[in-house]
Amino acid sequence: MMIIAGGVAILPSCSGDPGKASIALKNLPVTADQETLLAAVAETIIPKNDMPGARDMNLHLFTLKMVDDCSDAAEQQVFMAGLDSIDQFSRQKYNNAFVQCSDTQKATLLDDIAGGRQDNKQLTTMINITKRRVIQGFMNSKYVMTDLKKYELVPGRYNGYFPVKTS
């Protein structure tokens, strides 16, 4: 079985352990609960509306894959520490675990974290990494590139004086 994350197949975890992440990771010790939490964070960044959202596109799994393979050990450590402290921050503010918060509350929490309106630098870094990867996965997804025609594999043309539409 392969999991499709933003268009690319990712190997599922071999362990089959329900407590572990659903995809195979080499470096990040991510649990199933943490994966659920990250999915909620990603969905808050890119929610489903009339178009698919982060969860539909498995952008949280793409984020895990990228941090696992492309971040150095120090950044991975900060990412895990930040992930661990999200619930602490949401409880402080809303007396609830992040996944239990309303969509509006979740958005406010992420805005506060990204905007530095809390002291935990690791948490800020983790959210910024996640946001960067979720946006990357979204913009590079099959949905955006192919369905919305944002990318052409074979342009077959070049115009260096293409008039800009003024609307």
């Binding site: 933003g6 268009g7 690319v8 990712i10 894959k65 990228m66 393979d69 492309c70 971040s71 150095d72 990357q136 996965g137 590079n140 997804s141 099959k142 590139m145 192919t146 990318y151 594999l153």
Partner: peptide, 15 residues
């Protein structure tokens, strides 16, 4: 003929 989203790391090289 691969689309950008068909690359495991979207083109980036793993560390």
């Amino acid at each position: 003929n691969m689309m950008p989203y068909e690359f495991e790391h979207r083109g980036e090289m793993p560390l």
